[in-house]
């Protein structure tokens, strides 16, 4: 298990994303890399922009656990309790002209991963994603 700690997240979504995807455990998932990159970015940017509100900043811990069969990534922040899985999903039947732009990131996260779980424990938002990996 590998842990990455970011002491300050405000506005740092892109650089946190780059730091996580540079980890060997992620880079070595060749076939799943695109999906992992996409989902890590959506979650890191959401936490960076919205977890700590009212001008506050805070931390993010990212735990990476890779087995031969799957990769599990856990995001923990001490921000406002927020379950992204309760967000309204985009209406995919609407024509492009009428589409809203909200909820797209979490929608892609759910689609791309095999499991997405949210917990609030010990005053932390805990979001866990799992993806099965192929060993080619």
């Amino acid at each position: 298990m590998k842990t990455l700690h970011f002491q300050s997240v405000k506005g740092k979504g892109p650089e946190i994303t780059e730091a996580i995807i540079a980890e060997e455990d992620i880079k070595s998932c060749k076939k799943e890399f695109f999906a992992l990159h996409l989902v890590i970015e959506e979650l890191a940017v959401n936490i960076a922009d919205y977890a700590y509100s009212d001008g506050k900043d805070g931390y993010l811990d990212v735990l990476i656990d890779k087995t031969p069969e799957e990769i599990t990534i856990t995001f923990k922040d001490g921000g406002t309790p927020f379950n992204p899985l309760e967000r309204k999903m985009p209406d995919l039947d609407l024509p492009l002209e009428e589409r809203g732009i909200g909820g797209l990131g979490i929608f892609l996260t759910i689609k791309k991963m095999d499991e997405v779980k949210y917990d609030y424990r010990n005053r932390e938002n805990i979001l866990t994603i799992k993806k099965k990996i192929s060993n080619e």
Binding site: F34, H37, L38, E41, E97, R99, I101, L104, G105, L108
Partner: peptide
């Protein structure tokens, strides 16, 4: 090589906000 949902939003923006419903 890569697009995130923020990139998809740019495409939606081009379709909806440029005026005249352009072809994408």
């Amino acid at each position: 090589t890569y697009i995130a949902s923020s990139g998809i939003r740019v495409v939606i923006f081009a379709k909806q906000k440029l005026g005249g419903n352009p072809e994408i």
